[in-house]
Design a protein around this nucleic acid. Sequence first.
DNA 1: GATGAATGAGTCTTCATTCAT
DNA 2: TATGAATGAAGACTCATTCAT
Lengths: 194, 194, 194, 194
Amino acid sequence: MAPKTSEQNLEIREFKRKLIMDSACDLFANHGFFDTSISMIAKKAGISKGLIYNYFDSKEQLLKALVLEGLETFHENFDQNKDGILTREEFEFYISRYFSLLQENTKFWKLYFAIVIQPPVLELLDEELRKFGAPMIQTMSNFFKDNGYEDPPTELAFFSALLSGLAIKYLNAPEYFDLEKLKTKIFSIYQIKS
Amino acid sequence: MAPKTSEQNLEIREFKRKLIMDSACDLFANHGFFDTSISMIAKKAGISKGLIYNYFDSKEQLLKALVLEGLETFHENFDQNKDGILTREEFEFYISRYFSLLQENTKFWKLYFAIVIQPPVLELLDEELRKFGAPMIQTMSNFFKDNGYEDPPTELAFFSALLSGLAIKYLNAPEYFDLEKLKTKIFSIYQIKS
Amino acid sequence: MAPKTSEQNLEIREFKRKLIMDSACDLFANHGFFDTSISMIAKKAGISKGLIYNYFDSKEQLLKALVLEGLETFHENFDQNKDGILTREEFEFYISRYFSLLQENTKFWKLYFAIVIQPPVLELLDEELRKFGAPMIQTMSNFFKDNGYEDPPTELAFFSALLSGLAIKYLNAPEYFDLEKLKTKIFSIYQIKS
Amino acid sequence: MAPKTSEQNLEIREFKRKLIMDSACDLFANHGFFDTSISMIAKKAGISKGLIYNYFDSKEQLLKALVLEGLETFHENFDQNKDGILTREEFEFYISRYFSLLQENTKFWKLYFAIVIQPPVLELLDEELRKFGAPMIQTMSNFFKDNGYEDPPTELAFFSALLSGLAIKYLNAPEYFDLEKLKTKIFSIYQIKS
DNA sequence: GATGAATGAGTCTTCATTCAT
DNA sequence: TATGAATGAAGACTCATTCAT
């Protein structure tokens, strides 16, 4: 009966926030952003519509949080020591991790690619995504330069297209995309002994 | 005195239909399907909202027509003699054509990929897309088989992912994707003397 | 090749007018006035939408013409010699005719009752219907007076309610309403030897 | 601080639901179903358009609720002990009640008859109406059988037509239909000492 | 923190009617 | 007389968001 301690409140907030995001992610991924209503999210989360606005300013902000926080997790797997240099081991790890995250967190990546490909779904998001991407691109570019590739920009373009393409295709029709074999093929292209 | 000849009417319908589709394609590609209202399309086409429904049953049907008719054009460039067999020349031509269409018709392909990646935006469309894709996949699979590739399914997966990925990346940031160079790289991977 | 004579034109007009009215009657009766569009009528009549407006000022006017002209036919069967007096024979004939018209022209009567019961579907129509009804009511009232009924107004109310009710019920579920037997019953109530 | 108790909410919902239904009944009866827009109902009820959809799934469902719940009230007055047998007293009571409800709730019955006579305004409603009617018809049929009428089906047809006809006529022009006198006449026909 | 009734702007869609031909 | 492309006003319905409790 005593009022909740602020610690308990924080826990609740954290928990509810996660709950809302998970529910939203599920629905956005399966129905799309526009075909998912706040009501649906609330129902799935087992809370009231109003409460969602207690945690997120708007439907768009919810989406934004979803995408950005999801990306953070992913980002941690890239250039692990954050020194701007990608060793072969890190490169290899990155690819492996990319593939396994795709499998572990299908929902999120479906959402992510749907959003990214859409026109300027979210002006704000656009900018932040660039922030995320820029250092990765730079680091990756260096990697190709340092490893003696003739045309690093083209190599980078090729590589990033390949990874994105594989993700999208896999997410749409996993049964046709044996990620293990594809990983091996990629490794062989980049002469990594797997 | 006399009503318009049916020839005149046909011309008008042909023209207006195209006009509506073009306007819609533009807007869908730039704003997305959901963020483009029928009003916007009408305004852009310089006609009344109602007229759109004289040509298309619904916003969804308009989209469907847009995608399917656009794909037809593309499809014509694949396995040109329709014998189910892809020669090296045809394979090469297909890739070249793919790249040039990407550049010629940016709007359409933006729309296309946005739609394809979305959750089942359109049940109907989904099915029809499969119809389009199936024979291409078959033919392409045979190509890899006939050309001595060890693991045709993986090869096919890799190839289709690569092309899709390149398209998406290019459409989002053309300045970073030099299609000429990328084509050359692809040709070299598949040992085509360009 | 010679231009049509005005006589021929008149014939055409008459024919087309009838055609439109018949088509409309059918559709109004089956789908209701609001759920029948001008397009539907045109299609059923095998003509263009525009042409309908060559014959009727509006959808409402078409309905009005339909109802009024239909009623005229019916009216002719009442007080045949138009002397304001209803003989027993005329009374009997009227009832018989009422029943047979119900069977002959189901569509029209469905439409008629649907319209009449509706609120003020047509202000105009309302007035004209009264014009039609007034003399019939008067004559009928006299009939009951002349035939020694104690309370002619109540008798009239009863009689008109009975006929309307029978019509409506019969039109809705003809299989449950054996008009022959019902006629006999009515005759017996009003002591007419059938 | 605390959200409204569910009791409060229930009350609100109950009240608003009734309010919407009453407003709708009024308007449907006076203007007809099709000529009454959701906006009109909202305005009359003093609420927003959107709120109506918080209580009813569609305009049609609102109508359906209106008709069915109205009929329930009526139904309670028929064969009061629900034993499937109509005594003379119950028969008499039914007729009396029928007439008084007609006067008490004019709006509802206008709406009801307008709907019933229309072409299949509502497929669903049609079915449910039959459910309502069937046992009444059965019971009434038994009544005529048990009371020695020669031709019960015809008697039933006559009786139901009479009641419907009286209702419709009365609702359209109450000044001409003295229900008291008509009731007396009906009672005399069925030999009930009033 | 939590609820859900309430709002109102915005969307798709229909359709009677007009008019150039 | 006849056509059908075109209009635009109006309608049903949705949904993000607010707010009193």
